[in-house]
Amino acid sequence: KHLIERYYHQLTEGCGNEACTNEFCASCPTFLRMDNNAAAIKALELYKINAKLCDPH
């Protein structure tokens, strides 16, 4: 559950690194913003595939 919350935060708030290159992070310049419901679904999907989590900045 904690990991899913981290994915959700990364998708909605980002890691804080303006030069982030993680396509699944709101801080990445090319990230496409999504609403909270879509972010919750995506967080579950990312958890299932063990996607990369950013280190908070």
Rank of each mutant, 00 (worst) to 15 (best):
residue 1 K to S: 01
residue 1 K to E: 03
residue 2 H to L: 13
residue 3 L to I: 10
residue 4 I to G: 06
residue 4 I to M: 08
residue 4 I to S: 13
residue 4 I to T: 15
residue 5 E to R: 13
residue 5 E to T: 13
residue 5 E to P: 09
residue 6 R to T: 12
residue 6 R to M: 08
residue 7 Y to M: 04
residue 8 Y to D: 02
residue 8 Y to Q: 15
residue 9 H to K: 15
residue 9 H to G: 12
residue 9 H to L: 15
residue 10 Q to D: 02
residue 10 Q to Y: 03
residue 10 Q to W: 01
residue 10 Q to V: 03
residue 10 Q to I: 05
residue 11 L to Q: 02
residue 12 T to W: 03
residue 12 T to I: 09
residue 13 E to A: 14
residue 13 E to S: 13
residue 14 G to L: 00
residue 14 G to N: 01
residue 15 C to T: 01
residue 15 C to R: 00
residue 15 C to S: 00
residue 16 G to S: 09
residue 18 E to S: 13
residue 18 E to I: 08
residue 18 E to K: 08
residue 18 E to N: 15
residue 18 E to V: 11
residue 19 A to I: 07
residue 19 A to V: 12
residue 19 A to N: 12
residue 19 A to G: 12
residue 20 C to W: 00
residue 21 T to C: 12
residue 21 T to R: 10
residue 21 T to M: 06
residue 22 N to S: 11
residue 22 N to Y: 03
residue 23 E to G: 10
residue 23 E to P: 07
residue 23 E to D: 09
residue 23 E to T: 11
residue 23 E to M: 12
residue 24 F to W: 15
residue 24 F to N: 12
residue 24 F to L: 12
residue 25 C to G: 00
residue 25 C to L: 00
residue 25 C to T: 00
residue 26 A to D: 01
residue 27 S to Y: 02
residue 27 S to H: 04
residue 27 S to A: 08
residue 28 C to L: 04
residue 28 C to W: 05
residue 29 P to M: 04
residue 29 P to L: 05
residue 29 P to T: 05
residue 29 P to Y: 04
residue 29 P to I: 06
residue 30 T to E: 09
residue 31 F to R: 06
residue 31 F to G: 11
residue 32 L to D: 10
residue 33 R to H: 07
residue 33 R to M: 06
residue 34 M to I: 14
residue 34 M to A: 11
residue 34 M to E: 09
residue 35 D to C: 06
residue 35 D to A: 09
residue 36 N to V: 11
residue 36 N to H: 05
residue 36 N to W: 04
residue 37 N to W: 02
residue 37 N to P: 07
residue 38 A to S: 07
residue 38 A to P: 12
residue 38 A to C: 08
residue 38 A to E: 07
residue 39 A to R: 09
residue 39 A to N: 04
residue 39 A to H: 04
residue 40 A to I: 04
residue 40 A to W: 10
residue 41 I to H: 15
residue 42 K to S: 05
residue 43 A to G: 05
residue 43 A to L: 01
residue 44 L to K: 15
residue 46 L to P: 02
residue 46 L to A: 07
residue 46 L to D: 02
residue 46 L to M: 06
residue 46 L to S: 07
residue 48 K to D: 13
residue 48 K to N: 13
residue 48 K to W: 03
residue 50 N to Q: 07
residue 50 N to G: 12
residue 50 N to T: 12
residue 51 A to N: 05
residue 51 A to C: 05
residue 52 K to W: 02
residue 53 L to F: 10
residue 53 L to T: 07
residue 54 C to R: 07
residue 55 D to S: 09
residue 55 D to A: 10
residue 55 D to I: 05
residue 55 D to W: 07
residue 56 P to I: 11
residue 56 P to G: 14
residue 57 H to A: 12
residue 57 H to W: 03
residue 57 H to L: 10
residue 57 H to V: 15
